[in-house]
Simulated scan of single mutants.
Amino acid sequence: MRNWPLFDLSITTPRLVLRLPSLADLDELADRAAEGVHEEGFMPFLFPWTDGEPAERARRTAQYHFRAWGALTPEDWALEFAVLHEGVVVGTQGVMAKDFAVTREVSTGSWLGRRFHGRGIGTEMRAAVLHLAFAGLGARHAVTQAFEDNHASLAVTRKLGYREDGITLHNRRGEAAVTQRFRLRAGEWAETPGVEVHGLAPCLPLLGLDGS
């Protein structure tokens, strides 16, 4: 799309393709949300969007991406990629920033359809957006956080070299819960072999960068 080049932006890894979802991708992503993202009785998200019936989860998924597209500005942006494995949409990986041109800091968030857990996909898709951030956009820092009982997310974060960066207390379903914050500096980032970014240059002004 000539006036929205973000739809031509993609990241490829040895096993995955990350791209802003087409409407067909978004339908498939909504199906993954409806099928389930985590076990019952557990809530890994700050906003409990996975509570509710399958149809409601599917609708929330589509609406979230529509809002991200409409709200994007050079000063406050979120790239929410559909993640494809062997041609199937398996989840979503986001990278976000505010005032990136000044702060050079991004944050990340993701989810993966439950039936695709345990295959190393979560690590690979996070590595993909870290490559975009550090190698593509010139980020100096990447931050993330997860609840202390979200062991899978914590394992991915530690595997990719982040360092602990404090804690935050939250109200989770009426009870206090702790998230562990993490930070990865550019000088400590280890590039993952086989990751490539495509179609980035036309997108840079939309992300607060001039491309020079």
Rank of each mutant, 00 (worst) to 15 (best):
R126H: 04
G70L: 15
R32M: 15
V178M: 12
G70F: 08
V90T: 11
A139S: 12
T61H: 04
S107L: 00
W111M: 09
E164F: 10
L200Q: 06
Q93G: 04
S22N: 14
D210N: 14
F134P: 01
L16F: 09
T13W: 01
R140K: 08
H65F: 14
R172G: 14
G52W: 08
A127E: 03
E40M: 09
I167T: 15
R114K: 04
S10D: 04
G91T: 07
F147L: 09
R140C: 08
E39D: 15
L206N: 03
S153M: 13
H141P: 00
G208T: 05
L26N: 02
A146S: 14
E35V: 09
V17K: 13
E80S: 12
P21F: 06
Y162P: 06
E53C: 11
M43D: 14
L209P: 04
G161Q: 01
T13L: 06
N3G: 15
L206H: 12
D99G: 14
S212H: 11
G208Y: 04
E86F: 05
L209F: 06
T13Q: 04
G41N: 11
T123Y: 01
Q180K: 05
P193D: 01
A62Q: 14
L200T: 10
F147R: 02
S153R: 00
S10P: 04
W69G: 02
I167P: 01
A78F: 00
R2Y: 04
G70R: 14
T179H: 05
F7H: 06
A177T: 02
A135S: 13
G194M: 06
L209D: 05
T123L: 02
P202F: 05
F182L: 09
E75V: 08
A155E: 10
A62E: 12
I121T: 05
W69D: 05
F42N: 11
G138M: 07
G120M: 09
T108K: 00
I11E: 01
E105C: 15
G161V: 10
M125D: 01
T73C: 08
G120R: 05
A30W: 02
G161I: 03
L184F: 05
T144L: 00
R57K: 08
I121S: 02
V90D: 03
A133N: 01
W77T: 08
V17A: 14
H141N: 09
R126C: 04
P202D: 12
P202Q: 07
V90E: 04
A146C: 13
P5N: 05
V37S: 02
L160G: 01
P193R: 02
G187R: 09
T12V: 12
H131C: 12
